[in-house]
Design a binder for these strands. Structure first.
Lengths: 241, 241
DNA sequence: TCGCATTTGTGCGTATGTATT
DNA sequence: AAATACATACGCACAAATGCG
């Protein structure tokens, strides 16, 4: 990984260095417990001053990714990145089972609103039609993994919001509406920087990169039942097709 | 889209604003030919100075995304983002056909090297075994779309490098080795910032976000034949499963 | 043609953050 | 720890081009 030395790109050198080291760790080049190269070696590798490297390391230490020990060196604390499988039968909790000890979903709220153009197109309804909007965050072992906004047609699922708070599983609520099975019809994947609200809810630093997935689920007849906009911290998650 | 006002996140405000506006454009909120809000209005929206907004707009103007006209306003020049389909039978040129007028692939070079752990695991060979490594860039209508590094087992494809420069199509070269058909066995998707080499080759600004896809193709018997690491500028491409 | 509001373009001063030496 | 150089961000003012009544 090479790096832009001046700050004309609008991204501070310490952040570029922190991102590069974090990538080495979550990408597998450095395992949990490994000792990082010395600060002097890192400074040479990135053509930066040791002060700058130290700032990058202190950021990673705050995140819990590495820990410095005086006189011994800096060590990798946790090196795992979870894989989220995407396919025809994508189910959130099933896909991550086994990768984390505890997997929880927090329901942040919901409301009924009018569908904008994007939501209407995804759900195959007219713009302005009523839709239920559900906000949620999921955590693995206490660490936020995804921030999801889901829209469903109000006509078909008028009380979806009421039922999701009890059951906490989309699959279960769909079943309560008589939908025994459903499948993923399409997933679009893009990437961008997190905004401040996402930064806060996902416990990230400003400027973190998000993987954004827009998914449409359909029932057995192929009728769209939900449109989900999920945002995953790229430093903690990867998507597997 | 809310934005971090201070620069404590290591990402300059003008860059965050440029990213947010670009997202509005490629995301469909602003169409080609639309007039952007005035600089004063944007400054208010992002709680920033007009100078800062102007810097963001000048970056977007350099990219060709918007154009400013004195006395009239700033207008959206081009609003399209290409979709790259991913599936069992993923073929690069087929997937993008119809989305761009011209689609070219540049062969940047190749060499034989020893497989590292990641490459070996993907290809199902022993680390240290010889592999052919191919570097390439593809362009749509002259605009760089992807930067791809591909590894293939040397034992099976000793002259792959020689043949790719003539045929310029992986499908065609595989056919010349007697592989009539092949399919995608897995695709892993992540995201990160571009490094300086990628920035240069893809014609991006420092700090641009890349969608990274790691794909393994297998022959009819399920034996891995190639491991491809592709990097797409997130501002120009999205992946569709 | 004139005047006026709107909008982009330009200049300068100040304060703060970044990175090196 | 301090000095230096540069980039970022803000605030104010004014010039230049456009469009409209």
């Amino acid at each position: 990984m090479t790096i832009a030395k001046d700050m004309t790109g609008g991204i501070a050198l310490w952040r570029q260095i922190a991102d590069a080291i974090r990538l080495d760790i979550v990408g597998g080049k450095l395992a949990t417990g490994d000792r990082l190269p010395t600060e002097a070696a890192l400074a040479q590798r990135f053509s930066a001053n040791r002060h700058t490297v130290r700032r990058a390391l202190s950021v990673l230490a705050d995140e819990g990714v590495v820990g410095a020990e005086q006189g011994r060196g800096t060590f990798v604390r946790s090196a795992r990145r979870l894989s989220y499988p995407i396919g025809k039968r994508t189910r959130f909790s099933e896909g991550l089972a086994g990768q984390a000890r505890t997997l929880t979903t927090q329901h942040l709220g919901s409301r009924v609103e009018n569908a904008n153009a994007a939501v209407a197109a995804a759900l195959g309804i007219k713009p302005g039609n009523r839709v239920v909007r559900i906000e949620g965050v999921s955590l693995a072992d206490g660490l936020p993994l995804s921030r999801t906004t889901t829209w469903l047609p109000y006509r078909r699922f008028p009380d979806f919001a009421g039922r999701i708070v009890e059951r906490l599983s989309f699959t279960a609520v769909f079943a309560s509406y008589g939908i025994a099975d459903y499948s993923r019809s399409s997933t679009r994947i893009s990437a961008r920087h997190a905004d401040v609200e996402e930064t806060k809810l996902l416990g990230l630093r400003p400027g973190a990169i998000l993987l954004v997935s827009e998914a449409v689920d359909v029932d057995a007849e192929g009728v769209p039942i939900s449109y989900a906009l999920s945002r995953f911290p790229a430093e903690r998650m990867e998507l597997v097709v």
